[in-house]
Write a protein that binds this DNA or RNA. Structure first.
Lengths: 235, 235
DNA sequence: TTAGAAACCAATTTCTTTTTGGTTTATATT
DNA sequence: AATATAAACCAAAAAGAAATTGGTTTCTAA
């Protein structure tokens, strides 16, 4: 015959677990023993322990993470964005997709708020990037143009998010593929694309700015993929 | 007899180094070979090479770091995005505008990539937030819903940017104006708005997800403004 | 006195191993 | 037939070991 406890065994384990948490002196970080140890200590199977842990987690009383462990309390939120950690977890494809999500909308917002001063700085970036003697120089002006657009939103938080995105982009390794001409050619696709973005912003064309930015980033993405393909075929 | 070159041997090596830098294809990060290799390649002793590197470093043309290597260009400064600094420079209105720029696009991307598991977690958040007894609990599930949507993009960088945005949002002081009911009422606007977002994501309706998120955030913004007005009139 | 080679140091990276939550599979057990 | 259990397996993360690298010291030789 079944006792009430046997009818709801998982409830017993949850209770057992609560008692354990109440009486046990957990370390500073609130980490509790690994499931394999804890299940042995409580004299239950790992499967049953995990069911109980699921309950407590859904109640928000603890959080878990593979490789880290199980902790009481709520999952800590980082007080700082670790660029290096983000870069380690990410990859070029993700960075590109993130840019495609974020930057067109920043361009759209910039079209609404950009000042004449901001626009003339964009024009300066356009001109300098055309005059660049080396790819390194070109990249400098390209980066500055995109940041000027972010600044044109007049929203320091958006600029901060853009900087974070950009820092991760630089930190992620593309597999060193510096092919083709030694310096940017006048026919380089980015020149006209950049101008279309700035034109749209200048004309307060929000939709146009977003579209132009998206088109530009899609071209960049395609070129990078082509380079990767070539590198793969050659190597 | 001494030739001019022999009289200033380090100058020769500096020149040799400059030539090397000009003609060599450096990797993306601008790192040049370790001193031990480079000295062998240039046919000079490591001591003499280091003297030349000292010159170029003092000119600001390169930077070095133990364990990392020697790099051309200027030393990168920020490896962290300081949330506290961002929050200090920002304000509630900016945060709200940034959310309106970022989150609808995250919802759009999520509608494309969300897994059934992610969607059921969203549903769980919806249910729990409805059952919340306190505003604190409600906020917990609200936050988790928005983060689940970000996670559904399956893009760790976007999740990171969302977390940064969220951390700044928390850090910015809203003036702590918690008026009206002690707990969320069933008529609370967010409930239906949240459901529209999740519905759109579930139906892979990218435009609908973006619109629903934008509508939701605009309502949040309006409510906050109304609260501020009331607080201003009362105070 | 100076240059050069080697050894040494500590910061950093890279590679390997171990740990850990999550998942699957097979075997009992009821 | 259904469920619980144990074991194996997986990928994320941490921990540890080994190799790399700029900086410094020491010793030798010219």
């Amino acid at each position: 015959m079944l006792t009430p406890n046997d009818a709801h065994p998982e409830k017993t384990i949850v209770t057992q677990l609560r008692a354990y948490l109440a009486q046990t002196d957990l370390p500073e970080d609130g980490r509790l023993p690994p499931e394999r140890e804890l299940s042995a200590a409580l004299g239950v199977s790992r499967t049953e322990l995990r069911k109980a842990l699921d309950v407590l987690e859904s109640e928000g009383q603890l959080w878990r993470h593979v490789g880290k462990g199980t902790f009481v309390g709520s999952r800590p939120l980082d007080t700082f964005a670790d660029i290096a950690a983000l870069a380690r977890r990410s990859n070029p494809a993700e960075v590109m997709r993130a840019r495609l999500v974020i930057e067109p909308e920043i361009a759209r917002a910039a079209a609404f708020t950009a000042t004449p001063a901001a626009i003339s700085e964009m024009r300066l970036c356009l001109a300098r990037s055309r005059q660049a003697d080396t790819w390194r120089q070109y990249e400098g002006w390209d980066t500055r143009l995109h940041r000027t657009i972010a600044e044109a939103t007049q929203n320091s938080l958006l600029v901060g998010l853009f900087d974070t995105l950009n820092a991760v982009r630089r930190a992620v390794t593309w597999g060193r593929l510096r092919t083709a001409p030694l310096r940017p050619l006048p026919s380089h696709h980015s020149f006209t694309e950049h101008e279309m973005i700035v034109d749209a912003i200048e004309h307060r064309d929000m939709a146009g700015a977003a579209t132009a930015m998206r088109t530009h980033l899609q071209t960049v993405e395609r070129k990078l993929l082509e380079k990767q393909m070539r590198a793969a075929n050659e190597g």
